[in-house]
Structures are given as C-alpha cells and as structure tokens.
C-alpha cells in the first residue's frame, strides 16, 4: 500500500501533464464521474457537509486498522476533488491521516478550491476526514 505522501506525489505528477486549466478541469470532471459511488444508505443528512454552493456526503468505515472513506457531491467538479482526497486518505491508518497535510492541492493548482471562501464544502470535508481519523485513533487506544 502506498503512503499518503507517495499518492500525493503521483497526483502532482499526473496534473503536471496538463498545461491548461481546461485540461485540468476536464481531468477533474473525469475523476468526478469515475468516483466510486457511495452506498445509498450512507447518503444521509448526518453525513452531509453543507457548503454554500455544493454539498458533500462523507462516510467512514474502519476496516483492518485502516480508515475507508466513501464520499459524494452534487457538483461534479467538487466530486473530482473529493476523488483526489479519497484516493489520498482512504485505506490509510488513522495516525497517518491525522499527520498528513493537503498541500498537494496547492501544487496541482487547485488551491482556491480549498479556500474557505469557495464554500464548496471541501475544506470542511478535509477537517471531517481528520476528525474521523482522530475518532478511530481514540477508540483504538
């Protein structure tokens, strides 16, 4: 299993192939479309992270000492970024998730997507992923 750092480096390399914003966005849209569907039973009001513009659903399971995230959004671009975050943090140990940073988003030129003013729910989603990791960590100790 790749470490969070390795996965993030892969993503940065992947996005380096694109010079134009349009290609980046198209790639994000493809990622959004191919994000594995969240189990319908987890798409609940409790799992919703409200942004002003788009909504995000996030669910976490704890399987064999790893946190497994599934997520969804009603906006496809948001979903693309969710895809990147799920790819990075899912199937990782709670401690690694707690320790991880998300600066790779800056490196792929999508920094403004994670800014609080975007209000698309993504920043809250990262926080929520870490909160889940903390919770699993606390439970295990």
């Amino acid at each position: 299993m790749s470490t969070i750092k390795n996965i993030q480096n892969d993503i940065v390399e992947e996005f380096d192939m694109f010079d134009e914003w349009m290609e980046k966005y198209e790639h994000l849209i493809d990622l959004g479309k191919s994000l594995p569907l969240i189990d319908a039973k987890h798409k609940t009001t409790e799992n919703i992270i409200n942004g002003c513009q788009s909504r995000v659903w996030l669910h976490a399971d704890f399987e064999q000492d790893k946190v497994v995230f599934t997520a969804d959004s009603d906006a496809i671009m948001t979903k693309g970024i969710i895809g990147l975050l799920v790819r990075t943090f899912s199937n990782q140990s709670p401690q690694d998730i707690v320790d991880a940073d998300t600066s790779f988003i800056d490196k792929i030129g999508l920094k403004d997507q994670l800014s609080p003013t975007r209000a698309n729910g993504l920043l809250s989603m990262v926080k929520q992923m870490k909160i889940y990791a903390y919770a699993f960590l606390a439970k295990n100790q």
């Binding site: 788009s54 906006a75 671009m77």
Partner: peptide, 13 residues
C-alpha cells in the same frame, strides 16, 4: 441537471 457550481467555475475561468 448540471450543477450550477460546475458551470460557474468554468465561466469564471
């Protein structure tokens, strides 16, 4: 059924 946020993001660019 395209989400308005997605269209807005592209229009911004």
């Amino acid at each position: 059924d395209i989400h308005p946020y997605d269209i807005g993001m592209i229009l911004d660019k």
